[in-house]
């Protein structure tokens, strides 16, 4: 299992290289000149040219890219255009709040989503299934932005149960985590339900019922084990998707995470910070995929044997 994981990790290197090239091209192609933005609207041509030279943006694209790669090879993500501080110093303090938020949201979404999906599958088309389906649909369709503001009005303004912004305690985490969890929760619940329904119709489950096994044993021992693999896959996928939702959630709740930093950096065309963040997101996404593969091999001996 370890050699395979190492191989998958090594395969990530060319992918990340491609990511660096793609981000480089994208940030330079989108309209907007960072030198003009930094110099201000009433700056003279020579001031703008000076800023451009200082940022190294007067160099040909290939020179800029190769310089970027050279620095990257030494673990240097460059300097933020706006603050003139190291990008690693800009990103580092934002990592833990983002991890906290993602963990809380995904843990909640996974546990609740799997639980609700399983319960809904046990009585398909019953009232509980209908309620779960309805809430799943709402979770996926309600805009994150709107949900966040509504929660804020209810929990922070009217009931005054939690603070309306900021980070640091579980109370601060509650609203952003619930908002971020809503969409993945809906998807996980729906997928779990359909997967469970499929497993429950298998022959071995019929045999288990015929043997007179208790519901708990049939569901938790026989059915659940057979649907763990797809569940791991779609939970893994949702973590990646949640990175996207986090951008909106962090903005609404002023959560000091990476998503909000990305928005801010894109707005002011802070190329080094944007490149650093996208590279980090790509690395996290690839890392999650490797992790999901590892978990799949661990829970399913057939995959272990096949890959061996």
């Amino acid at each position: 299992m370890l050699p395979l994981l190492l191989r998958r990790t090594a395969e990530a290197v060319p992918t990340l290289l491609l990511v660096t090239l793609t981000i480089f091209v994208v940030v330079h192609v989108i309209p907007g000149d960072p030198a003009v933005m930094l110099a201000g609207e009433q700056a003279r041509e020579e001031d703008i040219a000076g800023v451009r030279r200082h940022l190294g943006l007067d160099q040909p694209y290939h020179v800029q890219y190769l310089r970027y790669l050279g620095r990257l090879a030494h673990g240097d993500l460059g300097y933020s255009f706006t603050t003139r501080t190291a990008v690693t110093d800009v990103i580092a303090p934002r990592v833990w709040p983002s991890v906290q938020l993602a963990l809380a949201a995904m843990l909640g979404a996974s546990v609740l989503g799997l639980g609700l999906g399983i319960l809904a599958a046990l009585r398909p088309h019953g009232w509980f299934d209908t309620v779960v389906s309805l809430f799943s649909l709402l979770g996926v369709t309600v805009p994150t932005f709107w949900l966040g503001l509504m929660l804020m009005w209810l929990l922070a303004v009217h009931w005054q149960l939690v603070p309306s912004f900021g980070a640091g305690t579980w109370k601060h985490l509650l609203m952003p985590a619930v908002t971020l969890a809503a969409a993945p929760l809906g998807i996980i619940a729906r997928l779990t339900r359909s997967e469970m329904l499929e497993v429950l119709q298998q022959d071995f489950i019929r045999t288990a019922w015929a043997k007179g096994l208790a519901l708990r044993i049939v569901v938790l021992k026989h059915a659940l084990r057979n649907m763990v693999l797809p569940a791991v896959n779609f939970v893994g996928m949702q973590v990646g998707i949640a990175l996207g939702y986090a951008v909106v959630t962090e903005t609404v709740f002023s959560w000091p995470g990476l998503g909000r930093l990305l928005i801010d950096a894109v707005t002011v065309r802070d190329y080094p910070t944007v490149q650093g963040l996208i590279l980090l997101f790509a690395a996290v996404f690839i890392g999650l995929n490797v992790l999901v593969d590892g978990v799949a091999m661990w829970v399913d001996p057939r995959i272990r044997r096949a890959t061996a």
Partner: peptide, 17 residues
């Protein structure tokens, strides 16, 4: 404190934060 969203800024004011 930076609260970029106008709606969230108003909510913080209404909540007394």
């Amino acid at each position: 404190v930076t609260i970029p969203e106008a709606g969230a800024r108003e909510a913080a004011l209404q909540a007394g934060d």
